[in-house]
């Protein structure tokens, strides 16, 4: 691990991927709401100025304009921070994009608490809940740069609306070099039989670190990277519940309605099993460094270990 170069922020990968795809797919146009330097769509704007529209600070207008572009055969990528793209413009996403199932790709950055210092107003910890509930919308949270590039390309080449959530920061590569992202498929990154740790986004690396610690204690944890929250890989989760009997979910999101919620909803109808949900326990975020915030909300390897112990206890007491 230590020999690898410092990973790029996922949003940088997003910008680079857009530039690469821009040449191959002339139907791609990109919109941003005055955050192109942060979301990194500026990279695309630089190369394809005529296909980039800065909509100003107007997220609702941006998403509905993207809908109009998509209705006319183009493939618009629209970017802003997750809190604005899914919060401010939720109803535009629902009614103008998803209800008519138009090929708008909402790629939002700055999802979750690793936004850090900007604080709770800018930390989207509800975006997965509010997007997961909209029909026709695919919801994806890539875990590393390798996956991000593939997710963006798949979204560009697949008709219909997508929501892709990216963090502000970077994380280590968690997927092997030959990894192939498949829409709607969870990826097993570590085998294990005592319990399953399901995670998404930057928390996949945290889950892997937790599993490493658990292994030192003689506990064998399976790690699933669940990057597609919708369509949800109910089968992989049911299998994990059946084979390991307990689960921990890890996400920088509210424990309500995100990955934890999706796992509970799926298992309740297939293989009921104890699930310990790590994330924001129905609270807003706050200012601090990303590291300090993750530690504060228990989204660390130690937090995962503690969660795993609780899950195992629940499993034993059944």
């Amino acid at each position: 691990m230590s020999s690898k170069p410092k990973p790029k922020p996922l949003r940088v990968v997003y910008g680079e991927t857009l530039v690469r795809l821009g040449t191959e797919l002339p139907e791609i146009v990109v919109l941003d709401a005055d955050l192109s330097k942060s979301t990194r769509t500026a990279a695309f704007a630089k190369v394809f100025p005529g296909r980039f529209h800065d909509m100003g600070i107007a997220e609702q207008d941006m998403l509905a304009t993207a809908a109009g572009l998509a209705a006319s055969g183009l493939v618009p990528f629209a970017s802003t921070f997750a809190i604005f793209g899914t919060g401010r413009a939720w109803e535009q996403l629902r009614n103008s994009v998803c209800y008519p199932s138009l090929s708008v790709k909402l790629v939002a950055t700055h999802g979750g608490i690793t936004v850090g210092e900007d604080g709770g107003s800018h930390q989207a910890v509800e975006d997965l809940a509010v997007t997961r509930v909209i029909p026709n919308l695919r919801v994806i949270v890539p875990a590393d740069g390798r996956e991000t590039a593939q997710v963006i390309e798949l979204a560009a080449r697949t008709p219909g609306p997508f929501y892709v959530r990216l963090p502000r920061g970077e994380g280590p590569e968690v997927h092997p070099e030959d990894y192939r992202f498949e829409l709607g498929k969870a990826c097993e990154l570590r085998a294990g039989g005592d319990l399953t740790i399901a995670a998404c986004g930057l928390m996949v690396a945290v889950a892997l670190a937790g599993a490493e610690k658990l292994a030192a204690e003689g506990i064998s944890a399976r790690v699933l990277s669940v990057s597609t929250l919708k369509p949800f890989d109910e089968e992989a989760l049911a299998r994990a519940a059946r084979e390991t009997g307990a689960l921990v979910t890890v996400e920088e999101h509210s424990v309500i309605g995100g990955l934890g919620g999706a796992v509970c909803e799926a298992l309740a109808q297939s293989v009921p099993a104890p699930v310990v949900r790590l994330g924001l326990q129905d609270v807003f975020g706050q200012s601090g460094t990303a590291e300090a915030l993750l530690a504060h909300y228990g989204l660390t390897a130690d937090g995962v270990v503690a969660g795993a112990r609780r899950a195992l206890e629940l499993k034993r007491s059944r």
Binding site: G50, R51, Q60, A67, G68, L69, A70, G73, Q92, S96
Partner: peptide
């Protein structure tokens, strides 16, 4: 929402 959508269509006419 419709005016934004119409704008998108009008922009698309320019692109295509």
């Amino acid at each position: 929402q419709g005016l934004s959508v119409a704008n998108g269509m009008a922009l698309a006419a320019r692109h295509t």
